[in-house]
């Protein structure tokens, strides 16, 4: 269990994390979702005692990370695939980490095997691809067989097989009753992995809810309506308080009214409707909706970039 309370980090004039509070529970995968620069990594570094919060506090299983007697056995973290000395081999890196907690050599071999690093374990970590670096980071996180796992963007740079492997691994670990806290900037990744979602934007928590609530709740339901009298139906529905987009002629996208209400309005006024489809917002759309005002780096549409 991870509990953050009013966690704030200010770097000079820039506030990276602004009073974030949340709880990450055991036995489920909690996703930490936010666009780049939202404060995910900073929050994770503060959990691990690497960055000192400007204010607020965070505990893991009831204690600040620094105060745990055997921290690597309590929390395993992948914070950065490059948290390795580039000239040291993967095996020696893990061996040195293990030595701090008297973790036996057999466990080092075990995590190397688990993460599929056997073939490259004796090679310098500096020559690793991003994907191999991620595997080494995950191996280091698993070293102490910890109850809590914190993984910052673990699927970054992994090949499709690796992505599926990470997904299965975190689901398996959560199934064993462990706490798994996983960050990503990709909604689609979260949709397939997480049970619970904490969405962060510009250093603030925007949403903190079970993943299905975020899919169905926040993305407002819309209805696609095709009719041969779009202008007339537009007026009728607008009068009932709907907001309406007209992507093409004879097609209305109606937000704020139930399909049944729309059908009733059309029937009453003898407007023919030849399609009536409820649209469930995808998680991706819900995420864009949630964070559209909180993205730090906006990109221009392709057309404007090429101008």
């Amino acid at each position: 269990m991870i509990e953050a309370n009013g966690l704030t980090k200010v770097y000079g004039a820039k506030t990276a994390v602004a009073g974030v509070s949340f709880t990450v529970r055991a036995g489920q995968v909690t996703g930490f979702l936010g666009p780049n620069g939202a404060g995910k990594s900073t929050t994770m570094r503060m959990i691990m005692g690497l960055d000192r919060p400007t204010s607020g506090s965070v505990t893991v299983n009831g204690l600040p990370y620094v105060r745990h007697k055997a921290p690597l056995r309590e929390v395993g973290a992948l914070l950065d695939a490059k948290a390795v000395h580039t000239s040291r081999s993967a095996y020696n890196h893990l061996l040195a980490m293990a030595a701090t907690h008297s973790i036996p050599k057999s466990r080092v071999h075990e995590v190397i095997e688990m993460t599929g690093l056997d073939a490259v374990a004796r090679k310098k970590a500096g020559g690793f691809s991003l994907g191999m670096g991620q595997r080494l980071g995950i191996a280091a996180a698993l070293l102490g067989d910890p109850q809590t796992l914190i993984l910052d963007e673990p699927v970054n740079g992994l090949d499709p097989e690796g992505v599926v492997w990470v997904r299965n691994l975190v689901r398996y670990l959560a199934g064993q009753g462990r706490t798994v806290f996983l960050s990503s900037h990709l909604m689609s990744e979260m949709a397939q992995t997480a049970d619970h979602l904490i969405v962060i934007g510009r250093g603030r928590v925007i949403a903190d809810a079970p993943i299905r609530d975020i899919i169905t709740g926040k993305g407002q339901s819309r209805v696609r309506v095709r009719t041969d009298q779009p202008d007339r139906l537009h007026k009728l529905l607008a009068a009932r308080g709907a907001s309406i987009d007209v992507p093409e002629r004879e097609l209305l996208e109606v937000t704020g009214l139930e399909p049944r209400t729309i059908a009733a309005a059309a029937l009453e006024n003898q407007v023919m409707v030849y399609e009536l489809t409820p649209l469930v917002a995808s998680l991706e759309e819900a995420y864009m909706e949630l964070t559209k005002d909180d993205v730090e780096y906006h990109s221009l549409p392709a057309a404007e970039v090429s101008k």
């Binding site: 299983n61 009831g62 204690l63 745990h68 007697k69 055997a70 921290p71 690597l72 056995r73 309590e74 000395h85 000239s87 040291r88 081999s89 020696n92 061996l95 040195a96 980490m97 030595a99 701090t100 907690h101 008297s102 109850q147």
Partner: peptide
């Protein structure tokens, strides 16, 4: 596990051992 009573953590000698490993593997 939480109390760390039965499982070893980073005492000075263990950390020293780790630093020796780091030193000789470069």
């Amino acid at each position: 596990r939480n109390g760390g009573r039965s499982l070893p953590g980073p005492t000075f000698l263990r950390v020293l051992n780790s630093e020796v490993i780091k030193f000789r593997t470069l």
